[in-house]
Design a protein around this nucleic acid. Structure first.
Length: 448
RNA sequence: GCGAUCGUAGCUCAGUUGGUUAGAGCGCCGGUUUGUGGUACCGGAGGUCGGGGGUUCGAGACCCCUCGAUCGCCCCA
């Protein structure tokens, strides 16, 4: 009979385990904690939408729409797409659920996104983001609050050497005037630009500004600046954002050539980027932006809604996870039976110890119960778990059993004995004895 | 979509200019040893050398195709 072949995972997907999974969870937990402090409301959204939700809002010419969406037809022949980003779907939800009634509404979510791209360091086909949006607020104070929250998430993750890069794209008119000036500027030197930038000249001229090609960078330096094209309103808006950040104690840096990839952005645009030469920059390779976003006042209109101001950001969980250092907390105690037939009793005791007993997380014991292998193996495994001490369940002729606390890896100090005794005493009549160096309790009978 | 590097036991890898039954360490299982017991010793299971085709008397090693991984470009979190 032919052996069944194991199917492979889909390219660009990942199975996360061990320290990486702990780091991933830590990022999400930290985000959840901080968003509550800022009173952002948790929301959940479908991972797929009608294709037009993304096609109309993101911009038909962007690469995301033209070649990076995971799209397919359902049985009714309708084109659906796995979400490549959060914002468009959230805007759709805002309209179809009538969330105007809550405006301005502060939303937070996280989950998987999908982009049909070649995987590389810090980039996957299924990746995960945390996301925060404020919809229905036109005030620059909304940008400030959103950025302050982002800054706090990064700081509470313990990530160092990352700076907020900030720019404004102006309002619609400012942006168009600037864009026209840029096209004119670069068209004059078109033949000397890189091949990619010659393409971009027609499709997405703003993108030339952050080209990595040296040939382009010569001309980027003296390219027209957005500041010269800002309307008075747009300038006042940006000033209000920056002075708000200063007042809030959020450090930032002006990045005149920072533009966002998607069409719908207006006014504030920002990215949190590791500083040159920092440990964070090394860890991330060429995928350096860990959090990005901006104001997208035009988006909701493009989905058929009323003109609605909004700001938001998203951050790659995998990228953040690469910058935090998390391993599993050390194990305090392993519990196992030393005599065959005492396994159920050992598990009963294990359960007493791991049950929530009203302690805070830092006081609760991490306990693992061993049941497999020969008795010798159990000792071997007990040690290799790294547990500080072992609780061994032994036979006792005149009582239920005898429980002995033994040292395994005593390089760490963590008081365990009182906690164990307390848990046991709640359910058993105890007789405490000293036996050699080890602490021993005889479990005489169960309490009623 | 483009480019570079890579793909040998569960894991990390070695396999000399192509030459007899493909190896090591770790892990796993068993035995002996060890009277706080992850040690030491002995033994065992486990590999269509990513897959397909070709060159050759002979290929894990050379060529082509394909799949996958890693890193970079485009783009982007």
């Amino acid at each position: 009979m032919a052996k069944t072949k194991t199917p492979q995972a889909i390219r660009g997907t990942q199975d996360i385990f061990g320290a990486e999974a702990e780091a991933f969870a830590f990022v999400v937990e930290t985000f959840e904690r901080v968003r509550k402090l800022y009173r952002f409301r948790r929301a959940e959204f479908p991972v797929f939408e009608k294709t037009e939700v993304f096609a109309r809002s993101i911009g038909e010419t962007t690469d995301i729409v033209s070649k990076e969406m995971y799209s397919f037809e359902d049985r009714g022949g309708e084109s659906l797409t796995l979400r490549p980003e959060f914002t468009a779907g959230i805007a759709r939800a805002y309209l179809t659920n009538g969330w105007q009634q809550h405006a301005p509404v502060k939303l937070a979510t996280h989950g998987p996104l999908f982009r049909y791209e070649r995987p590389q360091k810090g980039r996957y086909r299924q990746f995960h983001q945390i996301d925060a949006e404020i919809i229905g607020a036109a005030e620059p104070q909304a940008d400030v609050e959103l950025l302050a929250m982002a800054d706090q998430v990064i700081r509470e993750l313990g990530i160092e050497g990352v700076t907020l890069h900030l720019n404004t794209l102006g309002d619609g008119d400012s942006r168009e005037a600037w864009r026209a000036a840029l096209v004119e500027h670069f068209r004059a030197v078109k033949d000397e630009l890189s091949e990619e930038s010659q393409e971009r000249l027609e499709k997405n001229p703003l993108r030339i500004l952050d080209s990595k090609d040296r040939r382009d960078q010569r001309f980027v330096a003296d390219a027209p600046k957005i500041d010269a094209y800002l309307s008075d309103e747009a300038r006042a808006f940006f000033d209000a954002v920056t002075s708000g950040l200063d007042a809030a104690g959020v450090k930032w840096k002006r990045a005149e050539s920072l533009v966002r990839g998607l069409d719908y952005y207006r006014h504030t645009a920002f990215e949190f980027i590791p500083d040159e030469g920092s440990a964070a920059a090394d860890a991330l390779g060429s995928q350096s932006t860990i959090l990005g976003g901006g104001r997208y006042d035009g988006l909701i209109e493009s989905l058929g809604g009323p003109a609605t101001p909004a700001v938001g950001w998203a951050a790659g969980i995998e990228r953040l996870a690469m910058l935090v250092d998390r391993s599993q907390a050390p194990l305090d105690l392993v519990v196992f039976a030393e005599v065959e037939g005492f396994e159920p009793l050992a598990f009963e005791i294990n359960r007493l110890l791991s049950q929530g007993r009203g302690y805070s997380d830092s006081e609760n014991l991490q306990v693992e119960y061993l049941y497999s292998g020969s008795l010798k193996k159990r000792y071997q495994k007990a040690k290799s778990t790294g547990a500080m001490r072992g609780l061994v369940v032994e036979r006792h002729d005149e009582a239920i059993c005898q429980v002995r606390l033994r040292d395994l890896n005593v390089d760490r100090e963590r008081p365990v004995r009182n906690r164990v005794e307390e848990a046991l005493a709640e359910h058993f009549e105890l007789l405490e004895t000293k036996h050699m160096n080890a602490h021993t309790w005889v479990l005489v009978e169960r309490r009623k």
